[in-house]
Amino acid sequence: MISADAIRGYVDLMVLSLLRQRPSYAYELAQQIHAVTGAEYTIKQTTLYSAVKRLEGAGLVTSYAGASESGKPRTYYCISDGGLSHLELKVAEWRDTKSVVDRFIEGVEA
C-alpha cells in the first residue's frame, strides 16, 4: 500500500500521461488509475480533482463541457501542448529521482 504522501508529487504525471492518450473526465481518470495501480494505491477523489484543477490553472490541461451517454453533463479534460512538454519534463525528473533513490537503497533489505 503506497501512502498518499509518497506519491503526491507524481499524481500530475499520472493524469497527464492518461490524458495524452485521449481526453477524459474525472471519474474515468480515477478508473484508469485504479486499473493500473490495483490495490497498491487508491486515489482519493479530492486528490484527483485538485490535480486536474491545478493542471488546468497552469494551462497544461484544458477543459470542455461534454455529456455522458445518458446525457448527464460532464467536464472533459484535454492535454495542451504545454502539458505534453511538461509531461516529458516530469518523466525525465522521475527517472532521475528513481535512479537517485535507488542508489541509496542498494543493499537495504525490504
Binding site: K44, Q45, T46, Y49, S50, R54
Partner: peptide, 12 residues
C-alpha cells in the same frame, strides 16, 4: 472512504 480531504482542494 475514497472522497479524501477538502484541505487538498483549498488552493484551487
Amino acid at each position: 472512504t475514497e472522497f479524501g480531504n477538502l484541505d487538498e482542494l483549498a488552493p484551487q
